[in-house]
Computed example of a mutant assay.
Amino acid sequence: MTTERVDVLVVGGGPVGLFTAALLAARGTDVAVWERRAELPTGSRAIGIHPPSLDAFAAIGLDEPLLAEATRVRTGVARSRGRHLGTLTFDRASGTHPYVATLDQHRTETLLRDRLTALAPASLRTGTALTGLERHRDHVDATGTGPDGDRVSVRAAFVVGADGARSVVRDLLGIGTSGRDYPDRYVMGDFADPEPVAARSAALVDVGPDGVVESFPLPHGRRRYVALVPDDAAFAAADTTSGAPEAALASLVSARTGVAPDPASCSMTSGFRVRRRTADRIGVGRVVLVGDAAHEISPIGGQGMNLGWLDAAELAPLLTDAVASGTSGPWPGYARRRQASAARAARQAEVNMALGRPLGALGAVGREALLRTALSLPTAHGLARIYAMRWA
C-alpha cells in the first residue's frame, strides 16, 4: 500500500468540509477530502445561508453562483393568532448582503463540490471512511477504507475534522463533549408556498399559544415549515385520517396559523430533537475540529452550518501559513474565538426556542406584547444583525 502525501487532509465532505478544502486549494495548499458517503448529495436539510457566509464564499468565487439559485429573504414577520405583531428587515444587517439566502443543502453541496473540483481535481474521495489517526511531531498519518473496502492511507501536515456531530476524528483523538439535551421536538417539511403573494419573500414566525410555526421561502415557489410538536403521539394524532407525516404537518400548520399547505405538494418531511454539544478541546496538535465536530447547536435559527463555514474561513489562512512556514501552531486565539461564536449562537437558539414554546392564554398575550414592542423600537435593526450573524 502506497501512502499519499498532502498538506491537509479534510475528513468529511459535507458543506463545511468542502468549503474548508476549497479555501485551502484556492490558496495553493495541497488538499485531500475523505467523505464516507459514496452517493451524491440529496435532500433540502439545512437551507439558511447568512451574510457573513456569503462574504466568505466570495473568496472562492461561489457567492454569485449560489445567489443565482437561492431565494433572498429580506424581512421576517412575527404573527400570533392571525394578528401581525411586527416586521424585522435585514436592510441594515449587512453592507454587502442585506438578506438571508435560502437554498436546498444538496444544491449548496453540489456547488461546493464543483468549485473544489475546479480548484483541485480529484481531491474529493467519496466512499472513503477514516479508521485511524497516528500523530507525530511534524505530520499525521491517517488510515481508512476506500470505496472497495481496500485500505488507504495519507500522510498530512494537518488534519481537519469536519465530520459532523458524531465525529470519528474527535473520537480517535479522545476528545469528550459537554452539553445538554432539550425536551423540544420539531417537525419540518417543504411544501408549495400557500402564503399570500405579499408574504412569499418573507420568513414568517407564528408564536401562537400552542407553539411556534416558522416558515421560510425556498426556490421554485416552495416554503419550509418548521413546527414545535409537544410529543410524537400528539403529532401523529394531528391527522387521524391517513396518518401520513406530510398530512399531519399540514394539518398542524393550518390549525395554528390558518394557512393550509397542500400535503400533495410536500417533497420532504423530517423530525428532529434538539441538543447542544461543545468539544472539550477544538483539536490536538496538528488535528483541528470545525463545524458540528467542534460545536453542535440547535437548528432553530439556522446558524449551525454557517458557524462551520466561518470556522473554515478563519482556519484556512492559519493552515496555509503553517504549511508554508513548517510550523504547527497552536492557535489558541482561533479556538477561543470560534467557541465563543458558537456559544453565542447556541444562546440565541435557546432564546428562539423559549419564545416558541406553548403558553397559556395570559402568557401568549404577554409574549405578543413583548414582540410588538421589540419590533417597533428603533433598535430593531440590532435584532436583524443578530439573526443575520453579523457578530460571528
Rank of each mutant, 00 (worst) to 15 (best):
A78T: 07
D210N: 12
T117E: 15
H220C: 05
V31L: 06
V205W: 14
T29P: 01
A192P: 10
A227Y: 04
D280M: 00
L318S: 13
R107S: 09
R185N: 03
A238E: 13
E69A: 13
H136V: 02
F90M: 00
T89I: 06
R337K: 06
T240Q: 12
G28M: 06
S298E: 10
V229H: 02
I47Y: 05
R276F: 03
M268K: 11
P196K: 10
V213D: 10
R45Y: 10
G271V: 04
V159N: 14
A192F: 09
G132I: 04
V365Y: 06
L130W: 04
Y334I: 06
L228D: 07
F158A: 11
A165C: 12
V154K: 13
V154C: 13
S44W: 08
A250T: 03
R286F: 06
A129M: 11
R36I: 01
A364R: 09
A237T: 00
D55L: 08
D239F: 05
E195G: 10
S254R: 00
R224S: 02
R166Q: 15
D280H: 09
V10A: 12
V274M: 00
F191Q: 07
E64K: 11
H139S: 13
G28W: 04
A248R: 05
R113K: 12
P230W: 00
W34K: 07
L204E: 14
R338Q: 13
A58H: 01
I47T: 14
A322Q: 06
G291L: 00
V152I: 15
E64G: 09
G174F: 01
V226M: 09
D63Y: 06
R256C: 08
H220V: 04
H97W: 12
A361Y: 05
D262H: 08
T71Q: 14
R224P: 03
G82M: 04
L204D: 12
E214S: 13
P261H: 01
R185T: 11
T110L: 12
P217Q: 10
D63M: 08
L289F: 02
A157D: 15
I49V: 15
L112F: 02
L9G: 09
P52L: 09
G149V: 10
E314F: 04
A342G: 15
H106N: 14
M353G: 04
T278D: 05
L204W: 13
T278W: 07
R166I: 12
G243L: 07
R367C: 09
L116W: 03
V77Y: 07
A58S: 14
L124H: 09
P41M: 00
D30S: 12
S298N: 07
L124A: 06
N306D: 14
S328K: 08
G146L: 03
A120Y: 07
